[in-house]
Design a protein around this nucleic acid. Structure first.
Lengths: 181, 181
DNA sequence: GACGGATGTCATCATGCGTGGACATCATCT
DNA sequence: AGATGATGTCCACGCATGATGACATCCGTC
């Protein structure tokens, strides 16, 4: 059997990636420092530059890694909204929703976040609306996703007391009702 | 007639305040620097500390100054949504909506923003819902405001192409339909 | 016109950030 | 065992930001 190597670049890379994923989801890109990431990962922050090329590229890697985590079912599929709300309440709003509300400085980062938003949320919803024969499916899909992002972010921001305290099931029902065209 | 005084503390204060109001509305608190404010105002940034006590307190002053600008009519009052969307498209999302999506570090700043959100948006809407006999008026009001904030911010963030390009009238109609319980 | 407070200007400090490089330590191969 | 590349540690730089205080300049008053 292979004894656990005390030095393992792959392991360090992975630790940095998961720590970064968590912190970016909780606090967003700007409010997360490479020193924070290193501390949570138990890895020297300088290795971020070495292994990923910098903070921005680590962010991109985290974004892509989250990709396959859940099949891109659309927001109005049964149960999807509740599950998403539940997960986001535990893990924080995540990079994608934050990107929906505030543009990034770095163009590469901004474009990547936009692409994720498209693939995971807007696209599927537009497809549903199109299938249902709804008028202006694209606009309605973007509108719904933006509104949902507002709910998710607002819930986390602490500015809405009742929203944060609401029962997840009831909230999911209300949001579904609101988003349905 | 009074010759324009070359040195006028009141004028400098006012210039700083309006410049800060604009910049905070456009970029938010974090991405606005005191040097930016000073440059736009044509006033030395050091005077921010002198006249307001610091950047955070200038932000508070800007928040309070915006207060009486519009009577707190609720979001679903006829014409209100369209007017608001129009104004926000020109001036940027403003500090209040940004605070709805992202909490501030400074507790004083955060509380002030929350108070504004309550007085100007959530409170009036809750009152309307209560009058209409809607179930869970508080929760529904917070939900609607959060969703609307998402739309406003998303429109400005550049992540939603169709949303940003949508005709204001049509958008207002769609949002009204979405927000109505 | 001289005084003193008000107002403006400038240099500088303290802090936190991302990044890079020098150096140390480990693991593997011969 | 020794050589060599991989991996980890640490320090320090450069930069941006908010804040502060010393100094200069203006203006109303006597």
């Amino acid at each position: 059997m292979t004894a656990p190597r005390r030095r393992d670049a792959g392991r360090s890379r992975a630790l940095l990636l998961t720590a970064a994923t968590d912190l970016f989801a909780e606090r967003g890109f700007d409010r997360t420092t490479v020193r924070d990431i290193g501390e949570r990962a138990g890895v020297d922050p300088a290795l971020i530059a070495r292994y990923y090329g910098g903070k921005a590229q680590l962010y991109l890697a985290a974004l892509r890694a989250e990709k396959g985590e859940e099949p891109p079912e659309d927001l109005l599929a049964p149960g999807r909204l509740g599950g998403l709300l539940d997960r986001l309440a535990r893990r924080g709003p995540g990079p994608i929703f934050q990107a929906a509300a505030r543009p990034h400085d770095d163009p590469a980062v901004r474009d990547a976040a936009r692409a994720q938003l498209e693939v995971r949320l807007v696209g599927p919803l537009e497809e549903r609306f199109t299938r249902a024969g709804v008028d202006r499916p694209r606009l309605r899909a973007e509108l719904a996703v933006a509104a949902f992002a507002g709910v998710v972010l607002g819930r986390d921001a602490g500015a809405f007391e009742a929203l944060a305290a609401a029962d997840p099931g009831e909230l999911a029902a209300l949001v579904t009702e609101m988003l349905r065209p």
